[in-house]
Amino acid sequence: MHSSPLPQAVRKTGFSGPARLEGREIECIRGHACLFSNLEFALESGTALQILGANGTGKTSLIRIITGLTEADQGTISWNQVNIRDPGAAYAGHFSYLGHRNGLNDALTPRENLHYLGKLEASEPWLGIGDSLEQFEIGNCLNIPCARLSAGQQQRVALARVYRSPARLWVLDEPATALDAPAIGILAEIMTRHLLAGGLIVYTSHQAIDLGPVTARWLQL
């Protein structure tokens, strides 16, 4: 766990009620190659699932299937027992996704980017933009165009976006990319807090992220 004193921007109340993300008989075909088939996983509130596998085994494909951006060739993903592809599933409001592309426009400042992306959430983010950036120790970058930030700083901004999100499920594809050791410590800390509050996390990572006391599961591709 990260030990240095962090600004304690934490949720006053955790998420209420049970939540469950489940994948059944997932199959993914890319071109003419079958990346994986008959894949099963499930996770409940307060648990994290790390997807493991060598390059090219379909970690990102699985992440995108979980977000619904990519459609599985077979099988279903369900959120609280409802197939995410059902017309009335309203799944989009329940997760926050961080992909390889961080979603930040180069010309805009972190403040402008996070303001816009916050409006795409189901409800107003629970944490202010400045506070969320403070959390990642880049409060001084608030009004600098993202093009002028380093890759690590941009990744911190993108993580601040996820941290502010009211969503219960975090879907993170390589969240530790470009982060230095202290930043990975912060990431581990906020992930742990999110899980302790009753959240769920699905992630891939080449760097070790120490989630402390929380149950972490893994899925080998």
Binding site: E25, E27, S37, E40, L43, R217
Partner: peptide
């Protein structure tokens, strides 16, 4: 618990 069913070597029959 995350787990993986044994992959079926021939997906053809059941899929078709």
């Amino acid at each position: 618990m995350a787990m993986r069913k044994p992959a079926q070597p021939t997906t053809s029959r059941s899929r078709a």
